[in-house]
Amino acid sequence: MPVSKDRLTHLKRLEAESIHIIREVAAEFKNPVMLYSIGKDSSVMLHLTMKAFYPSKPPFPLMHVDTTWKFREMISFRDETAKRLGLDLIVHTNPDGKRDNINPFTHGSSVYTNVMKTEALKQALTAHGFDAAFGGARRDEEKSRAKERIFSFRTATHAWDPKNQRPELWKLYNSRVRPGESIRVFPLSNWTELDIWQYILLENIPIVPLYFAKERPVVERNGQLLMVDDERMPIASGETIENRLIRFRTLGCYPLTAAIESPAATLPEIVREMLLARTSERSGRLIDHDDSASMEKKKKEGYF
């Protein structure tokens, strides 16, 4: 039988690479966990994980760091997904932050992100003694991510030192850690936003309905559209809540995630809109905007 030249498409190559990475982690670490953020990237990562171990179940739990400010549709999607796939799901909220009612409105996005995301994540990783944690980050998202390793070493205090990362060659990942130290693993490192969408389309992967256009209640603030997901959202005088046809390109905490006006209600429409778009994905994320090195700072502190 003649062998065709380009046997594998770029998506097949990416899929195989991710599955290889996920299996390496299961084989070499004692206590891994998959950070599940409910977004489209997490949906793809989870789908690849199901493929990696089929017919077995993934030999590690999912964990969601719940800031209490996620969109309600995200939380119900999360619980349905874990149930549908029969997976263990750990949910952690920073008890100190909950007690002090840390929120993005009164404390600002920087304090809030630090307490409810970064600190919460570190608490959970330490409490469970996880030695590896999968994350769905991609190198094309942001400049400091472009230099991230697939196996990213973290000290016992969960810190990332960009100047002291292990060289990473071929498919040979170094999983050696001392007690307390850990590795963050990024199996989607080489995927782009377009790859993610094409793969969701190709594999028919379920995603949170917020990605699809629908009439939803929003206020316009500093030129960005924020969805009013519950009654905790303070509405300033002069602001009005109106229903607009919107959707989200990226999902996080609802007060920190801007919507876009869009009629795209199907996957092909979303991909088409993305290809025509002239604004990059993370611009809907308010936490990156402080200055262009802010993601690097957060990563050094232990943020994903």
Binding site: K143, A146, K147, S189
Partner: peptide, 28 residues
């Protein structure tokens, strides 16, 4: 655009491997 980390922007040199992605109609 591609010199990602703060330190190397200050020094004006690239100090680590960075990965970039682009595509044309024929290849990724």
């Amino acid at each position: 655009l591609v010199d990602g980390l703060e330190a190397e922007r200050e020094q004006g040199i690239t100090i680590d491997v960075a990965y970039r992605f682009f595509a044309t109609d024929k290849r990724k």
